[in-house]
Simulated scan of single mutants.
Amino acid sequence: MLDMADGARLAVGLVERIGEETSRLAHTPLATDGAKREREERIADHAAALKAVSEELAADGLGLDSPELAAIGHRVVHGGQKFTQPTVITEEVVAELEKLVPLAPLHNPANITGIRTAMGLRPDLPQVAVFDTAFHSTMPESAARYAIDTATADAHSVRRYGFHGTSHAYVSRETAKLLGKDPSEVNVIVLHLGNGASASAVRGGRCVDTSMGLTPLEGLVMGTRSGDLDPAVILHLSRNAGMSVDEIDSLLNKKSGLIGLCGDNDMREIRRRIDEGDEQAALAFDVYVHRLKKYIGAYYAVLGKVDAIAFTAGVGENAAPVREAAVAGLEELGLVVDGDLNAVRSGEPRLISPEYARVAVAVVPTDEELEIATQSYALVSA
């Protein structure tokens, strides 16, 4: 929960392991400087999770019945081509979101459940959907189209949508601020590196290319996702390994990426293993960085002129070796990292390139919750 007067957090928390035998709810009431509270119990589904969160907020005087509550913002993963802006939710909007479930079967159903539950708890309050795909909707057709039969693509909504849009929007804007410029004056390559990872090329505040595609599987090597691969790999595994569509889906989304290469998807553990001489961990790191460097080069070419590269999310913000390796050897492109600046750990946006560097290299902590709240509040207060 955020106070939009100054963006301050009034409460933070999360619910995890929803639907498992023992779920966990963590809640910290920042407005009252209260201690963190945790509950471990079975929380059956996302509707029950939201109701449990509402109870915790109410216990601190921040309940969903508060007259000061202006709106509830919802992250919705896939907006397709229809939703390219934050949208006040109506029954008609929910019906359209249900039509988009085939494009995001693991995410949109849970998003819709959260929306319906919140609408039931506060039917009088504006509910706003903010879409992960929206920031990337400005990509030109040359970047958004796959080179397959157009009629087939259009009939089945097959195109590149991109994800992590709220993060890319926030970080590109904050990077411009860090440089003391307006977003319209800056070209930025944003590298959102977490368990899920994506890159974007942002020209003057508008996305012109991004690494994820129809789904979040395309692009960079991720914690458990393969990223880019020859589509014929899927056909090969089906024909020669006898794998079903569901088995291949599980392989590429849950058993690939870093965990597929070395058995770990935590970059801290991978670096520890490398320091101990583990060759498999070193290979996984090298594959990860090789793909990352390819996208930096590709998006440099797309933009033509780059003012900054911004690292963000869990790995991007905290893994100095990844940042160093990603730009190593790219000095001719104006990319240099200062070792001392790169080693500093901070929760603040900061430059890690030396003053003489032609292209700024930055670490910019992302804040997707603030971005969702900002977009939601701007819409309902307009």
Rank of each mutant, 00 (worst) to 15 (best):
E247I: 07
G223L: 12
N195M: 05
V322E: 02
S353P: 07
P140Q: 13
L217I: 07
E21I: 11
A110M: 04
D246F: 04
E21Y: 04
A298G: 14
R206F: 11
P140A: 14
A319H: 02
A147K: 00
L50F: 15
T90V: 13
V101R: 14
P183A: 00
S184C: 13
I43Q: 00
P67D: 03
V128H: 12
R206I: 05
D124P: 07
V233I: 15
V337F: 04
S381L: 00
L220A: 04
V344G: 08
E369L: 00
A151V: 14
K255Q: 15
G79I: 04
N108L: 12
S226R: 07
V76A: 07
V364N: 00
D286A: 14
V315T: 12
E141C: 02
V15S: 10
M222E: 03
A360T: 08
N111Y: 10
T150L: 13
T374A: 11
S198A: 14
A378M: 01
A282T: 12
V53P: 01
Y161W: 13
V15G: 09
N318D: 10
A328Q: 15
A52P: 03
M267F: 09
R203A: 14
L2E: 05
D3R: 14
E56H: 01
P349L: 01
T210Y: 00
I189R: 02
I18G: 08
E40W: 06
V315L: 06
A241Q: 15
S211I: 05
K181I: 08
A95M: 07
A319P: 02
P140N: 13
S137P: 06
G219Y: 04
A328T: 15
L235C: 00
E317D: 09
N240D: 12
E279W: 01
P29A: 00
K305A: 15
Y288L: 00
L217Y: 06
G114Y: 11
F83E: 13
A326Y: 08
H156P: 00
N195R: 12
S54Q: 13
A151Q: 13
E324N: 04
D124S: 13
E55N: 00
A199F: 06
A357P: 05
P349M: 06
V208R: 05
S54E: 15
A35C: 01
F135I: 05
R323V: 06
E218H: 05
S142W: 04
P102K: 02
S172N: 05
L258Y: 07
T113V: 15
A169G: 01
T133D: 09
A199Y: 08
A5K: 15
V208I: 15
L57I: 08
S353N: 10
P321K: 09
Q81D: 15
D367K: 03
T133V: 06
R39P: 00
L351N: 04
E355N: 13
G162K: 09
N342W: 02
S353F: 09
